[in-house]
């Protein structure tokens, strides 16, 4: 049974991921961002330098805890140890948002450490909603869940991904982290219209947007791969412009870069581009409530 919890107010900032390469930049206090996002699992630890740096950064910036291992699609349920550690992190840094992905990563025996696709069925939706319910109850707050990029769909699918996400939000009370690059990647891989995807979502539940780079299709491989290792591609910027123009509230936008991470200035330039696009759509930064 879902426990009533506070709504997540909109936050219209622009941020970057906090990655080891940029620790010194962020500690200097001169990086012009409104928030940082961390991979939760990297900080679900007991002590040491990494945790101390996070706490130092948190003293001056809101932090979003973005997980990759909650595995809300696992038929076997959530990993209680993971959830307990996430709760400790949540209490330690009081994050702006706590998020994860619509995906599964593990069975009861093994972990893939990859965001694996869900069959889009009503039974899978039941599993996902039950797991989200457990996570949100344990954390005592609503979470955001990200649309994944995917490389296959299932013959047994009963609905579109946006229908699945809509019902998931409605039933569980969770919010959405819209990864615009993932929409683009999946739309190309599975042949749906990215505009239909956006139009079909409950956009009032979107609180954050991810922008990232991808590896385009090649003559040998007609699948686009979400890589986070290069600049955001032009079609993704175009989709971002459409998304922010459609959103009824400001959202937190960030550039996600996890491989071949460039100097902070390069990412800040990309973030400025996002600011300009969002500014053109009428969305400005908004302080957290």
């Amino acid at each position: 049974m879902t426990t009533p919890r506070e709504l997540i107010p909109p936050f219209g900032g622009f941020g970057l991921g906090l990655r080891r390469t940029h620790y010194d930049d962020f500690l200097s206090g001169h990086v012009a961002v409104d928030f940082v996002e961390v991979i939760s699992e990297n900080y679900m630890i007991e002590g040491g330098r990494q945790l101390r740096i996070l706490e130092q950064v948190r003293a001056s910036l809101p932090v979003i805890a973005h997980g990759v291992s909650m595995s809300i699609g696992s038929a076997g349920g959530l990993d209680r140890d993971h959830l307990a550690r996430l709760k400790i992190l949540e209490q330690r840094i009081d994050p702006l948002f706590v998020s994860d992905h619509l995906s599964w990563t593990r069975t009861s025996a093994h972990n893939s450490h990859d965001l694996l696709p869900m069959p889009l069925t009503r039974d899978a939706l039941d599993v996902v909603c039950d797991n989200i319910d457990e996570a949100q109850n344990a954390l005592g707050r609503a979470m955001l869940f990200e649309n994944p990029s995917s490389y296959l769909t299932f013959p047994e699918d009963e609905m579109t991904e946006w229908e699945f996400l809509s019902q998931m939000g409605q039933r569980s009370g969770c919010y959405l982290l819209l990864d615009v690059n993932n929409i683009y990647v999946s739309s190309r891989n599975h042949g749906f219209c990215a505009d239909d995807y956006l139009a079909g979502l409950p956009l009032d539940r979107v609180r954050q947007i991810h922008l990232a780079g991808h590896d385009p299709a090649t003559p040998e491989r007609d699948i686009i791969i979400d890589t986070h290792d290069r600049a955001v591609a032009d079609p993704v910027w175009e989709l971002y412009a459409k998304a922010v123009a459609m959103l009824p509230q400001p959202v937190a936008t960030m550039i996600e870069r996890d491989e071949d991470i460039p100097a902070i200035g390069v990412l800040l330039d990309e973030l400025d581009h996002a600011r300009n696009i969002a500014g053109g759509a009428g969305h400005k930064a908004l302080e957290p409530a």
């Binding site: 038929a75 025996a109 694996l116 069959p119 009503r122």
Partner: peptide
Amino acid sequence: SAKPSRADLAQRQQAFLQAIH
């Protein structure tokens, strides 16, 4: 049912991971 139940989903996820391994 032709739809996968929760147990079916668990089985399918095991098969998926096995195919990855």
